[in-house]
Amino acid sequence: MGFTNSTRAKILVVEDDTFMQKILSTFLSKNYEVQVCDNGLDALSFLQDGNIPDLIMTDLNTPKLNGFGLLDQIKASDLFKDIPIIILSGEEGSDKKTKGLNAGAEDYVSKPFNPTELEARVKVILRRLGK
């Protein structure tokens, strides 16, 4: 497992729900190269192996290491801190959103989400980064 050499932007999806994994990868695969990890710890070891995505999309309630834990590790790392992160979560409280954005996420999308809107948000972030 790993990203290929294609020029398409690479997205790492961190999500434990298999149904959600399927929807996200089917939808995003049209325009992006997508890899899925079940939890934050797997995502970190995926990064640690030298796979650097252009964007990470993470759920908050993932086993082993949750979304906030993953966010903290990535933002504390000088190697990974520039990877933009979108939180995709079932919780939509304003405090959760604030916490996520303050922890370094670029965006916070609550579930259920509109896939087209999600993709537009991905595009905005990649565009801002010139990718």
Binding site: L41, L44, S45, Q48, G50
Partner: peptide, 9 residues
Amino acid sequence: NWSDLNITS
């Protein structure tokens, strides 16, 4: 988490 981070490469 060193032992759980299954670093493959």
